[in-house]
């Protein structure tokens, strides 16, 4: 009889861990609340820095997890701790006994409406990174389709590094995502003027700096160091953006046809707001707490509970996949230590 492992979350972390655990001889049971797998990545168009199509990544992960038990449109109702195992009760009536639970519950995007001064949901020409990505992916969006776009702006750090928005943390991937999306826009509309409003540009990953240099040099994307203070609409229905050009020490304003807000990453509230009797410890950054942040990032302080992906903090796709792989190995080693 193969040992059960309940994986909560069918995004890329859950899928990768499920595939790895299956090949290590376990019986992973994957629970996903949506009707499809792949999480946020399922709506994404392509990935920095090599513009790899997101759907290729998702379908490869789904393919590797094809033989396992997957419950979509299913939520965890209760988790009960027994002597050395857990009883996980699901919304579809199924109840699973397992010694190990892997949380791969991911993140949610910061709700850009909350930054009222940026006018998301109020001014027609203001969209989010996620909206733009869906549009790249072929979904129509009247805010973009109905206008002649000759200029666009990207606002970095929307709901990130912002204590008043309730999230002082850096969401890490938005800098490089903005550059990727700016380049994609420039590829579609080479004559477009594209501005990025940033506080810092954090190009930490493989080839990110090259990507940034290319955005500057090859695509002529203009970077303004300064956080956007407020957005309004002019009589033509365009958005007027105010910021300080902090490198010059002068306020600037610019009129744009499209403004993209780079919404940050927050811990998925469905992990925090458990209807279940079980509560997962939360760290000071608002994400799930791991046993230690250096070496035991896959282990929850609670015995038998494991963590992978953006539920413990903002991560890129390769980081998430690496963490999921590492979580599978942690679970495997943990079971071996119990023998």
């Amino acid at each position: 009889m193969r040992e059960n492992v309940v994986i909560i979350g069918g995004g890329i972390a859950g899928l990768e861990a499920a595939g790895q655990l299956a090949s290590l001889g376990y019986n992973p049971i994957l629970i996903e609340k949506e009707d499809h797998l792949g999480g946020h990545l399922a709506d994404w168009h392509c990935l920095f820095p090599d513009m790899i199509p997101a759907k290729d990544v998702v379908s490869s992960l789904v393919g590797k997890a094809s033989s396992i038990n997957i419950f979509t449109r299913t939520e965890v109702l209760r988790i009960n701790r027994l002597r050395d195992s857990y009883n996980v009760m699901l919304s579809n009536g199924v109840s699973v006994m397992t010694r190990a639970i892997l949380l791969a519950t991911g993140f949610r995007l910061f709700d850009a409406h909350k930054k009222e001064e940026y006018g998301y949901g109020i001014y027609n020409q203001v969209i989010t990174n996620s909206d733009l990505e869906k549009w790249f992916n072929g979904n129509p969006d009247s805010r973009i389709d109905n206008s002649h776009i000759s200029s666009a702006g990207f606002v970095h750090c929307v709901g990130s590094r912002d204590e008043k928005a309730g999230n002082p943390q850096c969401s890490k991937v938005c800098c490089i995502t903005a550059i990727k999306q700016a380049i994609e826009l420039k590829k579609k509309y080479p004559d477009m003027m594209v501005w990025c409003f940033y506080m810092d540009l954090r190009m930490f990953g493989k080839k990110y700096e090259d990507f940034y240099i290319s955005a500057q040099r090859d695509y002529g994307i203009r970077f303004i160091r300064g956080r956007v203070s407020e957005v309004s609409e002019n009589i033509e229905g365009k958005v007027v953006v105010k910021a300080e050009d902090t490198l010059a020490g002068r306020p600037v304003k610019v009129t744009l046809d499209l403004l993209v807000l780079m919404s940050g990453m927050l811990c998925n509230p469905q992990t925090l707001n458990e209807k279940a009797t079980w509560h997962f410890p939360i760290d000071s950054d608002g994400f799930l707490k791991c046993r230690n942040t250096v070496a035991d990032f896959n282990l929850s302080p609670q015995e038998g509970i494991f963590l992978a992906g953006a539920c413990t903090g903002p991560k890129t796709v390769p980081e998430t996949i690496a963490e999921a792989r590492s979580a599978a190995l942690s679970i495997h080693n943990w079971f071996n230590s119990k023998e």
Partner: peptide, 8 residues
């Protein structure tokens, strides 16, 4: 006059 630089 405003010292704002109008990028337009």
């Amino acid at each position: 006059r405003s010292s704002t630089v109008n990028l337009d």
